[in-house]
Design a protein around this nucleic acid. Structure first.
Lengths: 334, 334
DNA sequence: ATGAAAGCGCTAACAT
DNA sequence: ATGTTAGCGCTTTCAT
């Protein structure tokens, strides 16, 4: 920077001013400085800027697992929003992590990022404690409701499940199974509640045998589907709380010679890109993943900029996307 | 840090010494400083450290798309290696990127990271130019051979394809199709060459109609498979250059009522986790994704530490993993 | 073994 | 409109 000042025959402050686009710089000088910057190929040192500004313009992202279209869409949304404010993204994966979990968070809090976005289904309370104590800006992504002390963004899980099951009900299905993620997850619990509510609205008794609990880390959708198929009064429709699981179900049904939707109706959840490339194209719930990522950044930035904002939960709407994986049952058969 | 020095009644230099674990600090003083740090919850400011050290201890990772198990495994490997040296990972996605591509790289080069790992099938030369001019440490991941001026890590693509096709040949298959990624990719070209070589070694004529070119960004495996099935002399085996494509092929075959491996043998590539969860479990080529990530970091670190090392290409070995998606043809039928 | 002081590259008062 | 200067929080000679 001193070099640029020399070449342009001005002071470093002036250089700094044009670097940061401030006013009160005569066009002549501005031009001269810009030229000098070009000639010297000058680019401001970020570390120094960060140091003096007290901000890193980096946000941390903690995910438990990469490699799903689900997380990919969220990250795309985060990136998009970050681009607007010229911030960078630091990635932390908790999967196969040898580091003590807390050290992890502590590093972020005291270190390199201005805030942290967490896309971790089951956030450990000790993480939150650390961040809370340090009043470190953070937001929890895709949880069902505010935990009271953190910002969070999620979706209307209850309504989504209610809509999906109601749609199936309108198609005259009466035996409707649900393959859900772990029920400890608040989102799963809400979806199951929505499922029950829809059934109840139609005066249909709830059958616990029709709910199968999967695990997103160790998917067992195939086994669960086969359990369903073996039932004497097997379901005519399956509602799955992720497209990934739905696709595994499709595979399994086909393996058993069943056709979709003729022999079994199927609804997924998330509306990942692949949902439209499988055959038949999957009827599913659109999960605003990309928007969730964007909202997370917005919420985080709000905290970083003015640290006195009280926790809030942002709830995004879902939408039933009807494609070809469901079919009406004839009222007679029903 | 000054606070710690005050509380411990020593100078800041001494505090710095214990923070960095230097010798020449009496045990008494060391203990006193450590206690002061604990009491005050002191954690060194990374920006300041980085500024004075002239290193950020952050490495950039540029990927074109997240959301595949392929990239996920690589990133896991990178993370693992980074953990050892206590560096952080900055993520750049080129997908849906509004930023001018060069600005992108330029930012990284002049900015925040000490080096860059690129997992981008088709690296633009202009990126490389920028990094080369700045002699910025970088490594290209999963390309087939050195480009002469960058470090890179890849696998033995030719051999891998040769092995896969030879296996099929030994199983008496004679009409063997290949569904490959874009042939502009050096890796794809090598694999196709390996395919041809294996055929030739068995004295089998090469049939261009049996090679179908897919696109990893816009997968068309289903359509391509159907083209293959419609052929009057349809293949009895398909070799696919990614497991993802292989799984789409499986789906398609099943849709057409064909059984694997009875009606069609199938070999994938990559050995992603899902390859073992589909039915039948996929015979495939093990692609050392995780190791590739680790090697990339090692190569990068070597460059960062001593910047005068000349470009090198690290080639990792693959391995045929035999599972249940292939079956021997009776010699008669063959 | 410990301390004093210079300086990493920049920004932002404060002067002029 | 432009220049001077004091830090930002740390590391690292150089003294002692």
């Amino acid at each position: 920077m001193a070099d640029v000042a020399n070449v342009a025959e001005v002071s470093v402050s002036t250089v700094s001013r044009v670097v940061n686009g401030y006013e009160h710089v005569s066009p002549t000088v501005r031009a001269k400085v810009k030229e000098a910057m070009d000639v010297l190929g000058f680019v401001p040192n970020r570390q120094a800027q960060q140091l003096v500004r007290g901000r890193s313009e980096v946000v941390g992202l903690m995910v438990d697992t990469l490699g799903t279209e689900y997380i990919s869409e969220i990250i795309n949304g985060i990136n998009e929003a970050l681009l607007d404010v010229d911030n960078d993204l630091l990635l932390y994966t908790t999967q196969r992590q040898r580091m003590k979990a807390d050290t992890y968070v502590r590093r972020i809090v005291n270190g390199i990022a201005d805030g942290l976005i967490m896309v971790v289904p089951q956030v450990s309370e000790s993480y939150l404690d650390i961040m809370y104590e340090a009043s470190f800006p953070h937001v929890l992504v895709d949880i069902d409701a505010s935990n009271g002390r953190s910002w969070s963004v999620g979706i209307t899980n209850w309504q989504a499940a209610f809509d999906a099951v109601t749609y199936l009900l309108e198609l005259n299905h009466r035996r409707i199974a649900i393959i859900t993620d772990q029920l400890e997850l608040s989102t799963s619990a809400s979806r199951l509640a929505g499922y029950k509510a829809a059934l109840e609205a139609y005066g249909i008794a709830y059958d616990p045998d029709l709910v199968k609990e999967d695990n997103y880390l160790f998917p067992a959708a195939r086994k669960l589907t086969e359990q369903l198929l073996r039932m004497p009064d097997a379901p005519s429709a399956i509602f799955t709380t992720s497209d990934l699981a739905a696709i595994r179900v499709m595979e399994t049904l086909r393996l058993h010679g069943l056709q979709i939707p003729r022999d079994m109706s199927l609804i997924g959840f998330d509306d990942i890109p692949t949902a439209t490339t499988v055959y038949p194209r999957l009827t599913t719930i659109r999960h605003p993943l990309f928007e969730m990522g964007q909202e997370a950044v917005a919420a985080l930035l709000r905290q970083i900029e003015s640290s006195d904002i009280s926790p809030n939960h942002i709830q995004l709407e879902t939408e039933l996307v009807i494609r070809e994986s469901c079919m009406a049952l004839s009222p007679l058969k029903a």
